[in-house]
């Protein structure tokens, strides 16, 4: 009995020493971590806007860091996912420095094609959920997360068709919008005039080259076949370097 009690006492002491050693070295190692971020850079390609964020982690501690996963989830005001990006680093051994680049992509062409098309017309606010998950010392899963907001500028903000005026053969339609987005809107805009019988009775294509944070306004003269007073609506089609969108139907009467 006495030997068993003594053995249990020794076992308890040994466990305490291991636990204290692990605690002290883990805290010390945590303070030896030197994470850092590089200069973020932007790129636009094929309707996708990408922000690249280089980062590095200098693990000067005594324990490995594994399964490092940096995720960013961008959502609109209604909680719909706009972009979901993830960067995974399998292992950061102790005493080493690992660099990686996290890329957050927002595809404007996908916004235009899906149920987020309203973002082309309305400014909004994006909610960005950022989370960094890792396993410390192969034993302690750890996660740090935050929530940020980012303004979204619509490329076709305040799109308005003014009151049309008519000549016997033409409809003159004022059109204006503001490009609040981060990109230059280059491409074409096609305006179709549709009469009460759902026939396209006139159309006009105009070139667009609208700088970021600037407005566009013009009056389009559209030749109309038939009676111009019979027209019902206008249909707008945008074909730009960043997105294609249309038809956007606007009543003219």
């Amino acid at each position: 009995m006495r030997q068993t009690i003594r053995a249990l006492g020794w076992a308890s002491n040994v466990f305490w020493i291991i636990l204290l050693f692990f605690t002290v070295t883990a805290v010390y190692s945590a303070f030896q971590l030197r994470p850092g971020f590089g200069q973020p850079y932007e790129s636009t390609s094929g309707g996708t806007f990408t922000v690249s964020l280089p980062f590095h982690i200098d693990n000067g501690g005594l324990y490995d860091i594994s399964d490092v996963n940096l995720t960013t989830l961008i959502k609109d005001d209604y909680g719909l996912s706009v972009s979901n990006s993830s960067t995974f680093v399998r292992l950061i051994p102790h005493g080493s420095n690992v660099s990686a680049t996290h890329q957050m992509s927002v595809s404007v062409s996908q916004i235009a094609a899906g149920n987020l098309w309203y973002l082309l017309l309305n400014d909004s606010t994006f909610n960005i959920d950022v989370a960094l998950k890792l396993i410390y010392a192969h034993a302690v899963p750890f996660k740090i997360s935050s929530n940020l907001t980012m303004p979204w500028g619509a490329p076709l903000s305040n799109l308005t068709l003014g009151t049309p005026s008519f000549t016997p053969t033409e409809a003159i339609i004022p059109i204006s919008f503001e490009n609040h987005s981060f990109f230059v809107l280059t491409g074409t805009m096609r305006l179709e005039i549709v009469d009460n019988h759902n026939n396209v009775v006139g159309e006009r294509t105009t070139a667009l080259n609208v700088q970021s944070q600037s407005g566009f306004g013009t009056e389009l003269d559209v030749s109309v076949s038939g009676d111009p007073t019979n027209i019902r609506e206008a249909r707008l089609h945008f074909q730009t370097s960043v997105f294609n969108y249309g038809p956007l139907v606007i009543a003219l009467v």
């Binding site: 308890s12 466990f15 636990l19 692990f22 034993a139 302690v140 750890f142 996660k143 935050s146 929530n147």
Partner: peptide
């Protein structure tokens, strides 16, 4: 706002074992 989450169950197991 920053949320920090840590799974210390291994550590807790060691404490409980002792």
């Amino acid at each position: 706002p920053i949320n920090i989450w840590a799974d210390l169950r291994v550590y807790l197991m060691m404490l409980i074992t002792i």
